[in-house]
């Protein structure tokens, strides 16, 4: 029988797209290049060493873990992405064993223990980061200024008004390797949104929620504003909280992870708004200056519940019909 006339009997899905896991992961890695380059440019070659150590450890751990699980190791790029994301949310001063331990923990416990790619509940890179932050709090909070590497605190720890908004936007502030430059992240994020790899709703609602709530809950509240000058201050503080810390990196690259966030559009909006509320809560009344990692991990835990309540429309049923049978 000639090729092409064969009757293929296979389980669904029958229609397959050309997009593969490897393709998506490569696109996200490409989108992270601006943030990675800006991090290396700002914080020097040690940042590059941290990134390489983290990626090698992530891939190596995945290789060993899959071998132990008796599965075939596929170089689909997801481990590379996890390693890269972890390195980008570490301080540039960390000793090299920390990205290695963090990436190994994130991949082994955060991903492979749950069954590998597609089965993990929590974002592996953030699992690694939070483990490092809980284990070595002192080493994870040694911040330096860009270029001259003088010890300092992050803008969020120092509070609103400590750095010009423009410096925050381009990334000329202390912070994690890949999180400081909102501009570089925005370039990569815009690419992903334009290519339709990520849903624009997530970053918009996540960052928007933080900005909106900070209008009311910051040091300058819109409710107390009497004249134009104080209104400008309120706006500036809201912008400060949107650009400072890891919010942009988290919103574009971690809250949009396919595996650990809801499947439906409405579900993603709920996820993003919830994470935004958590960030504001942690920053204003919590014990940490920054809460992006925790907010995304907590909402990761809610993802199965959100997906249970908000189900995708079953093909053929009426629009607006919730449940779908």
């Amino acid at each position: 029988m000639k090729e092409g006339t064969k009757l293929v009997v296979s389980p669904s899905p029958h229609v397959k797209d050309a997009i593969s896991v490897r393709g998506i992961m490569s696109a996200v890695i490409v989108a992270l290049i601006p943030a990675t380059v800006s991090g290396i440019y700002l914080f020097g070659l040690h940042a590059l060493a941290v990134i390489i150590a983290s990626i090698l450890s992530a891939v190596g751990t995945e290789f060993v873990a899959l071998k132990l699980m008796g599965r075939k190791f596929v170089m689909d790029g997801s481990a590379v992405l996890t390693g890269l994301l972890l390195a980008l949310c570490l301080p540039p001063t960390v000793p090299l064993w920390m990205p290695i331990v963090g990436a190994a923990f994130g991949i082994a416990i955060g991903k492979c223990a749950f069954g590998g790619l597609g089965h993990n509940i929590f974002n592996p890179a953030l699992v690694g980061r939070v483990f490092l932050a809980l284990s070595w709090p002192a080493l994870m909070t040694r911040w330096v200024t860009p270029f001259d590497a003088v010890s300092t605190a992050t803008p969020l720890a120092k509070g609103f008004g400590s750095v010009p908004i423009f410096d925050l936007f381009v990334g000329n502030v202390a912070g994690c390797i890949g999180e400081t430059s909102a501009l570089a992240i925005l370039i990569g994020g815009a690419f992903l949104i334009a290519m339709r790899y990520i849903d624009w709703r997530v970053p918009l609602f996540y960052i928007g929620t933080v900005g909106f709530l900070m209008l009311f809950l910051g040091q300058n509240s819109i409710l107390d504003a009497s004249d134009l000058d104080s209104l400008v201050e309120v706006g500036k503080e809201s912008l400060f909280h949107m650009f400072a810390g890891g919010l942009f990196l988290g919103a574009f690259f971690m809250a949009t992870d396919y595996v650990t966030t809801p499947m439906t559009k409405l579900g993603r909006i709920i996820f993003a708004v919830g994470a935004g509320i958590l960030v504001v809560a942690i920053r204003t009344v919590g014990g940490y200056p920054e809460g992006v990692a925790f907010s995304i991990l907590i909402m990761n835990g809610f993802t199965p519940l959100i997906d249970r309540v908000i189900k995708p429309r079953v093909y053929g049923t009426k629009r607006g019909f919730v449940g779908g049978g």
Partner: peptide, 22 residues
């Protein structure tokens, strides 16, 4: 020289028991 403080916190207990059990 720089131990993982997380292991002395509650998550450390769950992790240790889970891994040993596995």
């Amino acid at each position: 020289s720089s131990p993982a403080v997380a292991m002395t916190l509650a998550p450390g207990a769950f992790l240790t028991i889970g891994i040993l059990l596995a």
